[in-house]
């Protein structure tokens, strides 16, 4: 069993390298040949490289956030997007862009970015707490997802209303960002995005024991020495930061958080969460990188929205699991 696991990880690492190369070469409207790398230096380092790195970070953060949410809710279909948490973050970002515009906060780059990131994180944290409160009243996994969808509709509606009150400049940044895109992150953005993501992902590794215990439910996890409520609070905080952070930079990215942990459980038929955390990092990056390369090379010279591709991967998987009614 151990050996099998190692081989699977090796395959995933190889896939990650391949998808990195594919994303670097084909992840834009202009394809880069390996031979002309030197002449394409600017495109490579200032457009393609940050985009690939963004795809990796976004994949990792959303997948791990999804893994945490699925365990906290003990619902294999949960995820930041389907529970409306991404939308909560988006709404807060929209509000902060509006407020920031009128407060002239946005002129200062780092203050503006920090403001947006903090709003997104608070948005995702609030929605997670709300959903957690609701989850105590409903028993069905599917009903919880429906409520999540409704919440995200409500957030979307408020956001649309806000767009009417915004000036042309903010409106443009809303709309492009609201569709979800990996291409808006610059190298300077990455200087904020990457370190915070790394810290949170490292923090998750220290919570693998609570994650394993939480699988057994509140009573049993308390009885084997893990404080259920405290661990849950910190895990919600971490997953909110992960979701909010990525939403702040890339907009709401669909289904990665739901699909990747499910795939991880399909690949590794195992309940050890330290293994799933690492495989979510790998699988999340691979899927988002490939989706990006695919979105850019499916139709020549046109970049399709990344959410279109991730929805095509994630939504059928969720439907399939609902039909099988089996908890992965």
């Amino acid at each position: 069993m151990e050996r099998n696991t190692n081989i699977k990880f090796l395959v995933l690492i190889c896939l990650l390298v391949v998808s990195c190369i594919l994303s670097l070469l084909y992840g834009g409207s202009e394809h880069i040949d390996l031979g002309e790398l030197s002449s394409n230096n600017f495109i490579f380092w200032h457009i393609r490289f940050p985009k690939t790195l963004t795809a990796i970070i976004a994949g990792c953060t959303l997948a791990v956030a999804g893994l945490i949410l699925q365990i906290i809710f003990r619902n294999p279909l949960a995820g930041p997007y389907v529970l409306g948490i991404s939308s909560g973050a988006s709404l807060m970002v929209a509000m902060s862009i509006l407020a920031g515009g009128s407060l002239h906060l946005m002129s200062e780059f780092f203050i503006g970015k920090t403001f947006i990131v903090l709003s997104a994180i608070s948005g995702s944290f609030l929605i997670t707490l709300l959903i957690l409160g609701i989850s105590k009243k409903v028993n069905s996994n599917v009903v919880l997802l429906l409520i999540g969808l409704m919440l995200s509709q409500i957030c979307g509606a408020i956001q649309t209303a806000l767009e009417y009150f915004s000036d042309a400049n903010s409106l443009k940044s809303f709309v492009t960002w609201g569709m979800g895109s990996l291409a808006n992150t610059t190298n300077i953005d990455l200087a904020i995005y990457l370190p915070i993501a790394l810290i949170c992902l490292l923090a998750v590794l220290f919570f693998v024991k609570p994650l394993n215990a939480l699988l057994l439910g509140e009573n049993y996890s308390q009885n084997i020495g893990v404080n259920f409520k405290t661990s849950r609070f910190y895990l919600i905080l971490i997953s909110s930061v992960l979701t909010g952070l990525t939403t702040a930079f890339c907009g709401p990215i669909a289904f990665i958080g739901t699909a990747v942990p499910i795939l991880s459980r399909m690949v590794f038929k195992n309940s050890k969460q330290h293994l799933h955390v690492i495989s979510c990092l790998l699988l999340g990056s691979i899927i988002l990188l490939l989706s990006d390369a695919f979105a850019n090379s499916l139709i020549k010279n046109i970049s399709l929205p990344i959410n279109m591709i991730t929805t095509f991967i994630g939504a059928p998987l969720v439907i399939y699991l609902m039909f099988k009614n089996k908890s992965w």
Partner: peptide
């Protein structure tokens, strides 16, 4: 109470007893 899902096997549950 009943627990399950998430690939949990009988062995995993017994192993959880050693978690402290």
């Amino acid at each position: 109470e009943k627990i399950g899902g998430f690939n949990l096997t009988a062995y995993d549950v017994v192993a959880a007893g050693q978690m402290p």
